[in-house]
């Protein structure tokens, strides 16, 4: 499995309140949530994002509220993968549970810039920065988590 797209780059401590502001949590509709994704940190995100694009950020991505609406909004907006130096733990867990691909890679998070074209190979954990012509190696998932993802998320893995 691979992801390939243009990068939307953010900094440290991107919280779930800016990923999907609480004023939109009166719905669980995926498309409607996606239409407000990243609104309070990057009002042009929704306009600019294309199917397959990749979010890259630094430390503690997804901190704050446990709202699963945050990874849902990101996934439904077309983002194929989120790469960060570190993730807040509930966001990390929620992403695995709903099948949004996420990778921890400090080296990639620091070097990749907004607008770079990036390819991710999930089998090897190799992230290729096509714009800069270099690669980075992400930590692979533990087997337990690979199993949840390969079965299509937590609930499918329980069947």
């Amino acid at each position: 499995m691979k992801a390939h797209g243009t990068v939307h780059k953010y900094g440290d401590n991107v919280d779930t309140d800016v990923i999907i502001p609480a004023r939109y949590l009166n719905t669980a509709d995926h498309k409607e949530l996606a239409s407000h994704c990243m609104e309070d940190i990057d009002k042009d995100f929704v306009k600019n994002v294309k199917e397959g694009d990749i979010i890259v950020a630094n430390m503690n991505f997804g901190c704050g509220s446990s709202r699963e609406h945050a990874p849902i909004a990101i996934k439904a907006s077309g983002i194929s993968c989120v790469i960060a130096s570190t993730f807040a733990r509930i966001f990390y867990r929620n992403s695995i549970n709903i099948g949004l691909a996420i990778l921890e890679c400090d080296e990639a998070a620091k070097d990749i810039e907004n607008g770079n074209e990036v390819e991710v190979d999930f089998d090897t954990g190799i992230i290729t920065n096509i714009t800069k012509g270099c690669t980075y190696k992400a930590e692979p998932f533990p087997e337990f988590i690979k199993d949840i993802i390969s079965k299509g998320g937590l609930l499918n893995s329980l069947k």
Binding site: R67, E68, I90, N94, N97, L154, L158
Partner: peptide, 9 residues
């Protein structure tokens, strides 16, 4: 704290 999918499970 967890997400909604964990809650469902």
């Amino acid at each position: 704290g967890v997400g909604s999918t964990d809650m469902a499970a």
